[in-house]
Amino acid sequence: MSRTALLPVVLLLVCVIPFAAASPWTLVILVLPLLAAAYVLRAGVDVTDEGITVRQVLASRTVPWDELAGIRIGDRRRLWLVTTAGTEIAVPVLRVGDLPRLAELSGGRIPATQ
């Protein structure tokens, strides 16, 4: 994910500061920009020679190439990795438009769509 996505997070932080300063209990609102920043900085996909690693905020999972059965296109054009065991792993930052780039990075392991 591009680091420019942190700009709306900074804007969110500026917007919630007045609410957070209203009372000691509303300081909890400052957690929202922190969670959004953690998502922007952590979520992503790494494509290596060993396989595809899907990183989420609190966890990551690597699917080796020999365990990847395919890619499913879900609602809202989201992508899911389908393993040979039948499990599906949501890919948080890629959409259908990213498939040609993913095919290129896979070194031919994922066929390019026409």
Rank of each mutant, 00 (worst) to 15 (best):
V54R: 04
R95P: 10
P100G: 01
Q114E: 13
L99F: 06
I52V: 06
G108A: 01
A38E: 15
D46N: 05
R76G: 09
P33I: 03
E88N: 13
I110M: 06
E67L: 10
L7Y: 15
F19D: 14
V10I: 12
G86F: 05
T62I: 04
S60Y: 02
R72K: 15
P92S: 01
E67T: 11
R42F: 04
P111K: 14
R78V: 06
V40R: 00
R55D: 15
A85V: 06
V91C: 05
R3P: 04
V28T: 08
L7N: 08
A21W: 07
S60M: 11
Q114N: 15
V96K: 13
V54A: 06
G74N: 07
A90D: 00
A38L: 08
P100Q: 09
P18N: 08
S106Y: 03
P24M: 13
W65C: 02
S106M: 03
L58H: 10
A22Q: 10
T26I: 03
V31W: 05
L79E: 07
P64Q: 06
V16R: 00
I52E: 00
G107Q: 06
I29C: 07
T84N: 07
L27Q: 10
L81C: 09
T4F: 12
R95W: 12
R61L: 12
F19M: 11
S60T: 10
E88G: 15
T113Y: 15
L41P: 01
R78Q: 07
T4D: 15
T62N: 02
V31I: 11
I89F: 00
V14T: 11
W25V: 08
S2T: 10
V10D: 02
R72H: 12
P92E: 01
V54I: 09
S106E: 02
R78H: 09
I52A: 01
V54M: 04
V54P: 06
R78A: 07
